[in-house]
Design a protein around this nucleic acid. Structure first.
Lengths: 109, 109
DNA sequence: TGCATTACCTCGACATTCGATGTATATTAC
DNA sequence: GTAATATACATCGAATGTCGAGGTAATGCA
């Protein structure tokens, strides 16, 4: 795996939480949104996201609901649970703490 | 693994490169230095670091030299190679890019 | 003597991620 | 009409990274 990919490990779940806090989304939409909003820096793969969504659902961080999309074809929309919302807060805090620490060590004390 | 640990994945190698750019260090010293400088946010484990150092040595990113420490007991000092130095530059750039992207997605566009 | 610390190291278990692959429908282009 | 592309769900195996536990041995100190 490239260094860049390696660094991005662990940011996937927090980002998913953050997007779902904005509004409900379906899997494919999450992939496209992240890749587009990050300007190509992040590149979520379906093979990464779908298992993660299922895992997060099992942990009651998100809940799923089938709803008809604009074409009439059903899509699986995910939304945050209260528990997911709490974890989001925690994640943001931890990201701040970590990125400060890494910055210090990497960019010079 | 805790969320925080999960986030820190992938930062280990860049940080090692960064420390060794400052001066040569031995493994145990790297562990202690990182944990202390990060104020406990990062917590390098020997089981992580030693295999990594060996891997990096195999990739010619660092080179090792046995030298006598103050007690006369030999220590294995690691130093950056030119190749390691180039990767450090790259790593710093990639960290900046990534952390900006993650910040945007996590903390709100 | 006994304990903590320094300093090297390996190993197995576990989790994460990717690339590949599969299915099916909808849209667009020729 | 049909070929190609995009949408949208999903699983699986291989590769990799990390940790906790364990091992060895020397030093410093009370």
């Amino acid at each position: 795996m490239s260094l860049s990919k390696e660094l991005a490990r662990g940011t996937v779940m927090p980002i998913v939480l953050s997007l779902l806090a904005e509004r409900s989304m379906y899997g494919y939409e999450i992939v496209k949104t992240v890749n587009q909003r990050s300007g190509g820096v992040l590149d979520f793969k379906e093979g990464t996201l779908y298992p993660l969504l299922h895992k997060m659902q099992g942990q009651r961080l998100i809940k799923a609901k089938w709803e008809d999309g604009p074409t009439g074809k059903p899509r699986k929309y995910y939304a945050l649970t209260p528990k997911g919302n709490r974890l989001l807060d925690e994640s943001r805090e931890q990201w701040s703490t970590l990125s400060t620490a890494v910055h210090t060590l990497l960019m010079g004390a």
